[in-house]
Amino acid sequence: MPDSDTPAKLLASANMQHATGGMSFVKAHSMPFFFLALIVLNSIFTPSFLSIDTLDNTLRQAFPMMLVALGMTMVISSGGIDISVGAIMAVSAAVTARIFALSVLATTPVSVLLILWMACAICCGLLAAGVCGLLNGMLISKFKIQPIIVTLIVMFVARSVAQMILGELPLSLMGTRFEDLGRLRILGAPIQVLIMIGAVAAMLFIAKKTVFARRVEAIGENRRAARLVGINIFRVTVGVYVLCAVLCAIAGVMEAARGGRVDAGRLGMFIELDAIAAVAIGGTAFSGGRARILGTVFGAVLVQLVTVIVNMNDISYHYSLILKAVVLVTAVWAQKDK
């Protein structure tokens, strides 16, 4: 078990990882090259591509998908898949917005009470997402149902719960302090970017330094062997899906704050496709195994860049689907083991 390792052993294993990592360095980094090429091409062909505004917009729009993709990376690393992510975003946003809008505080100027109330509402949203994640993990590990079916069921249930909470019409948050949360800037940087950097850093730490990530990887690589060496599969699986759900919840709440409204029927719809594509581009194997967080970050930015480029060049949405398909295939092909 890694937790009984001495520092010397850990160092040795880290060195070994570097040695074997060197071999795949060129292969693993074909993607940043690809990414650079895309940026260079566009700084030539797309008007006003290289402006702060574009960067700002790209990052803010990439935010929800990036968080979802980070969670998805861990899930896929454990050999599973989570297609309920969009519905979890919707349910957490619905719960948060509904609770926040209950109070007269919603439109009052900023005060300690308001911040507390907002935190309370967001916590309830996170809790709702956590329950979904718990359900996912429990059904998958305790009842041995295939992840794709479990998360499909949770997708149905979570989205309909979100719609039942909000009713027929989208809930508008216009004019409430909640909308300001989405526009908040700290030292000039949008809050989305800060959360994103924090989430990437946290996930990098989890993936590289914690025993949890090793256990996840072990389950993904060989479930039976993982069980035999004494890994508590139930606990680790639940942990993975709850982690993913909480990241989705943050994405959902912030997305509601950015848009100033929650449409339970549409929020986070089909985001699982983009997130899965980002993870695939990032090089995490679908059969389970090592979680490549940085790869996912690149993948997410790449997928988002495709959307942005298509929007800025006034190409219709339909071509962006084809472009995404081409990017996905090329990126996965470029870094496959030859």
């Binding site: 071509y319 689907l321 996905l328």
Partner: peptide
């Protein structure tokens, strides 16, 4: 030699486009 999940996901997006 692209894994089935990724390859058919790409085709799903591409054909829909």
């Amino acid at each position: 030699k692209i894994p089935p999940f990724t390859a058919t996901l790409a085709m799903m997006l591409g054909v829909r486009g």
